[in-house]
């Protein structure tokens, strides 16, 4: 009888471990998915910036240095595929800063200001930017969900056995706090 009870308890314990492991793994995969989605969006934004630079290039020749800086930062975003998302975000943030400066200076060039292709690119970049914000918030929500799940007793024991560690969330920087790039400001509307 005792043997059966022990086998039963071990069996239940195993079932619990399997269920918990799968639940943690499911949450971890969701976090990773968000990671990849952000990465794709950052890449999209970098690509749109290249288009933006080539559109403005001829019209704003005086801003050669700034254009080069934007191009260099964009290449950095493109090349650093092995970097962590945090680092990628840092590079993307710097790139965004340079682009904002570039757009500010574009104001002085009326020819480009009313260029429909340029305006269209602006819209696309802003749209990607909003999607990045949404994806980043989703990522943080999923990380919070994962972290809360693995610290609860007795799941924390199973999590430590299988080496599931708490994941860092994206810190909200001044840049990312910004809801939208203010096009009205950029275009002096």
């Amino acid at each position: 009888m005792t043997t059966y009870i022990i086998i039963g308890v071990i069996g239940l314990l195993l079932v619990y471990i399997i269920i918990t492991y799968n639940a943690v793994k499911k949450r971890e995969i969701k976090v990773e998915q968000s990671f990849y989605n952000i990465d794709v969006l950052l890449q999209n934004r970098a690509d749109e910036i290249v288009n933006l630079v080539s559109t403005t290039k001829s019209a704003v020749e005086n801003e050669k240095e700034l254009l080069e800086e934007v191009t260099a930062l964009r290449s950095k975003v493109n090349r650093n595929s092995n970097k962590k998302v945090d680092d990628k975000l840092e590079d993307a943030k710097r790139l965004e800063g340079s682009v904002t400066t570039l757009l500010g200076r574009v104001e002085a060039y009326p020819d480009i200001k009313y260029n429909s292709q340029y305006n269209h690119l602006q819209q696309r970049i802003s749209n990607v930017e909003e999607n990045i914000q949404a994806q980043r918030r989703t990522f943080n929500a999923r990380v919070a969900n994962f972290n809360t799940y693995i610290v609860m007793f007795p799941r924390n024991i199973i999590a430590s056995i299988f080496k599931f560690n708490k994941k860092p969330s994206f810190e909200v920087t001044d840049q990312s706090k910004k809801e939208n790039i203010n096009v009205s400001e950029l275009f002096g509307k």
Binding site: E130, Q133, Q135
Partner: peptide
């Protein structure tokens, strides 16, 4: 889904077919 605005989450329930799109709409 739970959103990152505590007051909003306390007063409203948000149901969605796509949580990323929901956050795209419901910015802070």
């Amino acid at each position: 889904i739970e959103l990152d605005n505590i007051e909003f989450s306390e007063r409203f329930t948000v149901m969605t077919s796509d949580e990323v799109k929901a956050r795209y709409i419901l910015t802070p």
